[in-house]
């Protein structure tokens, strides 16, 4: 037993030190590409840390989003940055001091100070000791319709959190769509290896997404993790040169993008009209309703993530080869 404790301690200490060191290297790395690889490694260690903290739900989310999709997103952003820099020679202008982006700016500084003061005040006014709500969650778990406490909290007890998170993702996509300018240079056709890989891996990714969605009712999993895996399938297809056909890129794409939030809001309005509270599901059907909401959310999240990866707004006209 002694040896086991020692091993546990060594593992945790090494993991913690590795995380701190990696975080420092990511922030101080002068080379952007290096920082991206280190960030992916940071995501891996972070997921291991969540596992050690006995939070497999967060580890799953970190694995899907932190180490998986973020790496692909950052690499795509890196490639785009380089083409932009090559075209406009931003680096050269920065060196000559033509772009004065290093000068001290009062408004952002004041704004940040106000935010920091507000946050500090909130933290200081918190009660010193809080029992937490986990006892209450486990007491009410039966009425939630699912047996995984994390899903119960995210989709039932605090459903509006999930709703707002999906709105945040949509807002991010709107932001990307409104500022995306330069398209990527034309890609080479995928070789036989990538072709085979995407054909083999995409169905597996979709299957795993469905599995995570289903298993979320009673074990770690759920809409966000499933959505991230579905988004990864979309990213893989986009990387293999696949594009949404033009008659689907208009309204049908937008309908899927908003399906999750719209399903949530419709459910909320419906429950309020039938005499309940905002997002208070009828107890008997809670499990079914949660599965329905999660399916809509998974589709929306996956599509949003893939669209974020593409970066530019899919054109309605036939502009893709």
């Amino acid at each position: 037993m002694e040896a086991l404790t020692l091993l546990h301690w060594t593992f945790d200490i090494l993991l913690g030190l590795g995380l701190l060191w990696l975080g420092w290297r990511v922030l101080t790395s002068p080379d952007l590409f290096n920082a991206i690889v280190l960030f992916v490694a940071f995501g891996l260690l972070m997921a291991l840390a969540w596992v050690r903290l006995d939070a497999p739900d967060i580890a799953l989310a970190e694995a899907a989003i932190g180490a998986g999709l973020t790496g692909a997103l950052l690499l795509a952003a890196f490639a785009k940055l380089r083409t932009v820099e090559k075209n406009h020679d931003i680096a050269g202008q920065l060196e000559k001091g033509k772009l004065e982006n290093r000068s001290f700016q009062w408004w952002p500084a004041t704004f940040l100070l106000v935010v920091a003061a507000g946050l500090g005040h909130t933290v200081l006014s918190l009660p010193h000791y809080a029992t937490g709500l986990s006892a209450e969650v486990s007491a009410n778990l039966k009425s939630s319709g699912v047996s995984n406490p994390v899903t119960a909290v995210l989709l039932n007890f605090r459903g509006y959190d999930t709703l707002l998170e999906m709105v945040v993702l949509l807002l991010a996509l709107l932001g990307v769509w409104s500022i995306s300018g330069s398209a990527l240079p034309r890609e080479a056709a995928p070789g036989p290896i990538l072709d085979t890989l995407s054909r083999l891996l995409t169905p597996v990714l979709i299957l795993v997404a469905a599995y995570l969605l289903w298993v979320g009712a009673h074990a770690p999993g759920g809409a966000f993790q499933a959505g991230a895996v579905l988004g990864a399938a979309g990213v893989l297809l986009l990387l293999s040169g696949w594009r949404l056909s033009s008659h689907l890129a208009g309204l049908p794409l937008r309908i899927i993008l908003v399906a999750g939030p719209v399903a949530f809001v419709a459910m909320a309005v419906f429950t309020m009209l039938t005499g309940g509270q905002f997002l208070e599901y009828p107890r008997a059907e809670a499990g079914t309703l949660i599965l329905f909401l999660e399916t809509a959310a998974t589709l929306s999240i996956g599509t949003t993530l893939a669209a974020l990866f593409l970066g530019e707004r899919p054109k309605n006209k036939r502009e893709y080869p």
């Binding site: 580890a59 799953l60 694995a63 998986g68 999709l69 891996l201 795993v208 995570l212």
Partner: peptide, 16 residues
């Protein structure tokens, strides 16, 4: 499941 997701998504990062 976490290991499964890792294994699948690492391939996507490599392709990216």
């Amino acid at each position: 499941d976490v290991a499964l997701v890792f294994a699948l998504l690492a391939a996507v990062t490599a392709v990216a």
